[in-house]
Amino acid sequence: MTRLLSSALTLTKRLFKIIFSFFYSIGEIVEFFLKCVKYFITEKFYVNIFLKQFLKIGFNSLPVVGLTSIFTGMVLALQSYTGFSRFSAESAIPNVVVLSITRELAPVLAGLMVAGRSGAAIAAEIGTMKVTEQIDALKTLSTNPFNYLIIPRILAGIISLPLLVIVGDIIGVMGGYLICVNLLNFNPTVYLQNTYNFVEFIDVFSGLVKASVFGFLITFMGCYHGFNAKGGAQGVGQSTTYSVVSSSILILLMNYIITSFFFRL
C-alpha cells in the first residue's frame, strides 16, 4: 500500500516536473523573442549580414523548392485526374492544382524543406559558435549577438520564404500543366486560361502569409536552439534536431491555424 502510494507520488512529481519545464521553456522562448524585438528597435542593424543570409536562405533554397513544387504539381494533376475522371469532372483539374498549390502545398512543402535545409544549418552554425565561446567573444567585443547573428537571420527568413513560395507557385502550376498537356491531352491554352480565371488574390496571398510565418518559425527556432546549445559537438547535434523537429511541428500547427483564419474570410 505504502509502496503504491510512494510510486504514485514519484509519478505525480515527475508529471509536475514535465509540466513545469514545458512552461519554463515557453517562458524562455518568449523572453528570447522579446529580446529580438527590443534589440531590433534599439540597436544596430547589420545590413550586409542580412543580405548574405537572404541569399543563403532564399536564393540557395531555390533548387530544392523548385524540385518539390514541380513534382507536387505533377502528382496533383495525376491524382486528381484519377478521382475526377470517375465523374467526368476532368476540367476541374487546373482549378484543383492551382488552389492546392498556392493555398497549401507550396508554402507547407517549401517551409518543411527550408526547415530541414536552412533551419538546421542555422542551429548548427550558431550552436557551434555558442559552444566554442565565439558568442561570448562577441559580447566582450561590444557586439550584441542578437543584432549580429540572430535578427538578420530571422528577417531574412521572413522575407525570403514568401519569395520562394511565389516561385514555387509558378513552378507547381507548370508541373500540373506539363502532365495535363503532355499526358492527359488537355488543350494548353485552355488549361492556362482556366487557371488564370479561377485563382483569386486571396489564394496566393494566404499562401504568402503562411510562408512568412513559416520563415519566421524556421529561423527563430534555429537561432533559439543554436543559441541555447550546451556541451560540445553532441549539444550542437541536439540543437539541430530540436530546431528541425520543433519548427516542422509548428509549421503544421500554424498552417492549420492560418488556414482556418482565411477560411472565414
Binding site: 565561446e133 565565439q134 567573444a137 562577441l138 559580447k139 566582450t140 561590444s142
Partner: peptide, 15 residues
C-alpha cells in the same frame, strides 16, 4: 564587458 580583453580557452575566433 568592454573593459576586458579576453583570450578564450580555444581562442574563440569567429570562424
Amino acid at each position: 564587458m568592454s573593459k576586458f580583453g579576453i583570450l578564450f580557452q580555444n581562442s574563440a575566433l569567429l570562424d
